[in-house]
Write a protein that binds this DNA or RNA. Structure first.
Lengths: 187, 187
DNA sequence: CAGTCGGGAGAACGATCGTTCTCCGGCTGC
DNA sequence: GCAGCCGGAGAACGATCGTTCTCCCGACTG
């Protein structure tokens, strides 16, 4: 097994286990067993568990944003691209191993004790909101809508995780549709 | 020190430390030191750390819902009572030690490995949504609004925690105000 | 006032964790 | 074919954790 596939297998195993059980509940030996990569090799690829945790988050950050990009850019109109975000959530929430947003979970578990993890989570959510802001700007909607949609999306993630139901995706999409209607109060 | 105050001091110290650093990052000895209650006494009040964690969550559940009740019932009109939820969040987010919702954090950290914690978090969020549902019903709004407000509130909590800003409370309130306007599409 | 009992301080214990080291087998270059 | 080395398996190590035990002081009861 060459170095690249060992690294990939390690990241795959660590990602799955961390997401399922949380970071602190997973020992390095469980990652070794799940990945098939020896501890010695693991430690020469990632000098500590914290490095591995951060590498997992960095890879997931890229994957999530790429997936979201693919989902939204497939739609025809700017408004449809905004609503596609919630279709993306709906698909995600229906996956049987869904257990919330790995970044929110990591922040909750480690944000208070690991500045590295906290910074990565902040960066991911900032990038997520920036993606929404680009969609909002392309749709000619007011910039304030981006933060509102981000709150909706994050809220749907945690609510779906806690309740174990995919319903929040549809409920958040309903709200988003209301926000895309022309405003009433101001004329 | 009698039994009741020992229990209260334990719960106070454990609550503060768990909230600051997470549950697994806090050892029983740190709780002993912060509370001034001996380990022996602690273990005859709570037979294990897991019991203590669950007792902390149960007490916080009561406190949060009572605080919310006080906040919302102080307003005059049904619509104002709904919007008061977001004033409550705004006050909360501005507290210097704010680090997100303890229930969401606990679920993220332990929901995958402790069924007791997961059940308590589900119960708290269900009660929170039920409170919103009561306000929504009293305002004569459609029942679907309650779940939408819950998503908004939960989203504001995690977004405020990750970004470290109280802004999400106001942004979520803006969305809630839009939802309280009469709907447009359906006439 | 003497004896008993509850509680405090902290050591002790077994388990587990992150990390490193040892030993050994198999592949590579001459 | 053989010496040298890289990597795997797993033991070892020190730290820390949850939990229990020991020792001792101080207070209450007859």
């Amino acid at each position: 097994m060459d170095q690249a596939t060992a690294e990939e297998r390690l990241l795959d195993a660590a990602d799955t286990l961390f997401y399922e059980r949380g970071v602190q509940a997973v020992g390095m030996d469980a990652i070794r067993q799940a990945s098939g990569v020896s501890l010695k090799r693991a430690y020469q690829l990632f000098p500590s568990k914290e490095h591995l945790v951060e590498a997992v988050l960095r890879r997931r950050d890229r994957a999530v944003l790429a997936g979201l990009q693919a989902y939204t850019s497939a739609r025809a109109t700017p408004a449809a691209r905004i609503l596609a975000v919630f279709d993306y959530l709906d698909d995600w929430f229906r996956q049987p191993d869904f257990r919330g947003c790995a970044f929110i979970n990591s922040y909750a578990e480690l944000g208070g004790v690991s500045e590295g993890v906290a910074a990565l989570v902040r960066g991911h959510k900032r990038a997520f909101t920036a993606h929404l802001a680009a969609l909002v700007a392309a749709a000619g909607e007011p910039p304030a809508l981006a933060d509102q949609l981000a709150i909706l999306a994050n809220g749907a993630m945690v609510t779906a995780a806690v309740t174990g139901s995919p319903e929040p995706a549809r409920q958040a999409a309903d709200v988003a549709r209301r926000l895309l209607e022309p405003a009433q109060g101001v004329t």
